[in-house]
């Protein structure tokens, strides 16, 4: 038992080992300790989805997890979505094409939820998209454009 712990996790493809305070959330650690500020803080009750990250293949709210809980896990944040050569991923490109990013504050979480969906269901229906993204609020309400972007990314992967 301890109030801080050295954990090992794969963050955006890189295995790293670092010490975290046990009462810090994954969101706190990503933003304040690892400098990965792409993951956003808004409601901190798991309602808005701005803090979404993918942990071991599933999207989760990093505001509702202690950082120690990802010990041994693989974590993908928005910074980890671009392709290895620095190019945008097809999904990121589709968001630009569709005009899905307006103010942009919710977009990291939207991208994470969408990527997790496409990883699970490569060709989702529009209802599956809306359902999978219902935990990501967008007050610019670019929901239509976001859904179109996800569909376009799915179609692009097909061709």
């Amino acid at each position: 038992m301890s109030e801080s712990l050295i954990i090992e996790a794969t963050i955006n493809g890189f295995r790293r080992s670092f010490e975290v305070a046990v009462h810090h959330t994954l969101l706190d650690v990503l933003r304040d300790q690892l400098g990965l500020t792409g993951t956003k803080e808004c409601c901190v009750v798991g309602e808005c989805g701005a803090c979404s990250v993918i942990v071991d293949g599933r999207p989760m709210n990093s505001c509702l997890m202690l950082a120690v809980e990802v010990d041994g896990a693989e974590v993908t944040t928005v910074e980890g979505l671009a392709l290895g050569d620095g190019h945008l991923s097809p999904l990121q490109g589709a968001f630009l094409d569709a005009g899905a990013a307006q103010c942009g504050f919710c977009i990291p979480g939207q991208l994470i939820a969408a990527q997790a969906l496409l990883d699970r269901i490569p060709h989702p229906t529009i209802d599956e998209i809306h359902e999978a993204m219902a935990g990501n609020l967008c007050r610019c309400a670019g929901y239509e454009q976001i859904a179109k972007a996800v569909q376009a990314a799915a179609e692009a992967a097909n061709s």
């Binding site: 792409g38 993951t39 956003k40 928005v78 990121q92 094409d97």
Partner: peptide
């Protein structure tokens, strides 16, 4: 495309 869009989809946009 939105100017500033790349920062918004990569998480690099600084709010």
């Amino acid at each position: 495309h939105r100017l500033g869009g790349i920062g918004r989809v990569t998480g690099h946009q600084q709010y």
